[in-house]
Amino acid sequence: MIDFLLQPFQFEFFRNGLMAALMVGALCGMIGVYVVLRNMSYIGHGLSHAAFGGAVAAYVMQWNFYIGAGLWGFVAALLINHTARRYQIGADAAIGIITTASFAVGVALISRVRKFSTNFEAALFGNVLGVTQADVWVIAGVLLASAVLVFFVYKQLLFVTFDRDVARIYGVRVEWVDTLLSLALAATIIVSMQTLGVTLIAAAIVIPPIVARMLTDSFSKMMLFSIVVGALNAIAGMYLSFLVDVASGATIVLVGALLFVLSLVLRSLRRRAAKGRAGPGDVLVPLRSGAELFE
């Protein structure tokens, strides 16, 4: 059994890939809590597509991938915010327009240049084999920076996420908190692209917080659970990917989806147990379902 578990570790690509996936899983779980509770699930999906345009542009211009995708993603996030506020367009529509246009820029550039279809596929669907030692360090840096941010701005982030208008009245600098979170989210998405792929990042950001939400009503516990679920999910997904020889991004997301179903089952079992204990007069208000949270 131990040999079986340790067997993949003889390959450097697996060690790098596992480290990367573990940290990306924890990072997405942490930032995802805010994304899900602010009903911004779609933003993760949109931003990853927007960043793809930047990544391709950076490749064509021979800039650093992280700088290209990062700047592009951050500008897209600001544009979405601005458009939604200024022109009274729903945020979902603004995301739909800006990020898809940005993605289209990437596709257009690729169709002109045509010479890097493997990289194209890696960015879309994730390629953990391509993760280098340097990538692992970048991911570690973003994870550390985000953890420091969440640690020191925890109370402000919680208040703004719970009730932004009231948070401002109580002296929280809401615009600053939003900007910091946007930066952390953009950085999260960009470092996750290599491991998970553009098309699958949204799931890694959304599933761990929702699984955590099913298990607790306390914010601090939800944060802790979400990070742990994200990390465990990534490790399990990586092993599965190695064993059944399927793309790592896909296995990570599928394991996540399975965890989500398990958490649903667990919750309904707990609720049934609670119903058994409660008297006939007790009313159990249903928790909002995962499906509602996805909307």
Partner: peptide, 25 residues
Amino acid sequence: IDWNFPVTVEQVVMMGRIRRMGFVP
């Protein structure tokens, strides 16, 4: 108020003290 938000009563009440609290979470 978003009554489905995962916060306990104590966590909500503590928000009122945000101007006086230290840097730790």
